[in-house]
Amino acid sequence: MQQVFKRPVSLKDVQTHFCPGCHHGTIHRLVAEAMDEFGVQQRTIGVASVGCSVFLYGYFDIDVVEAPHGRAPAVATGVKRARPDSFVFTYQGDGDLAAIGTAEIIHAANRGEDITVIFVNNTTYGMTGGQMAPTTLVGQKTSTSPYGRNQAKDGAPIRMAELLTQLEGVAFAARVAVNNPRNLLDAKKQIKRAFRYQVEGKGFSFIEALSACPTNWGMNPIAANERVGGEMADYFKLGVYKDTAEF
């Protein structure tokens, strides 16, 4: 028998701290597979953010810089400019990228830095206890919006992929999900395409991956997984928003 699925080389053979049913593990694996495919593991420098994604250095077999909360695109800019031959990606959550790090992501994208940003959107602050994030859906109950997000007071959830698409510096932007095999295989394809932009020096690439957070949503893993494909995908439409290169 031939092995048709194995652990990517770039992903360390360790147990993760993620809760059961959390999509971070799946997205980690897809990123590792893309690194393996392009053979960039030895020259990759990952930039980790603050949140559940903070332990990037423990899970990927690559060099990692830990950035202050929200500042990963700024740190990645410095890394890429100091070492242009390296492959640089950031891996950030929504509390990190869409809240405290809004300035950094918008300006790094607008400058068209030659980096890849993996943005994991689970509509909440996962690690700190499920507070309301800028991406929390209207009506969603969190520990800081116990009666549900109120659009009149808190605004509507930010759609980062669409927002960044408008910037001239962005070469590639897509929103993906990993909640079922079809979406997952498409996510794999888009993450590889985003990486190819950087490998070929075509500019800033952005992936928004919808993720479940069963613990903070107060759901079991199966129900949380269904919410990603239902309520979340209805508001955060999946698809490729910008694709400027031809290859």
């Binding site: 028998m1 031939q2 092995q3 048709v4 992903l11 993760t16 049913g21 799946t26």
Partner: peptide, 25 residues
């Protein structure tokens, strides 16, 4: 041996194998 269970597993806890004669990739 379609490996979809392995693909969706967040913890890479499943490895998948397929008979060579019917493998298509």
């Amino acid at each position: 041996g379609c490996a979809l269970c392995a693909e969706i597993c967040p913890d890479v806890a499943i490895l998948a194998f397929k008979n060579k004669t019917v493998a298509h990739k």
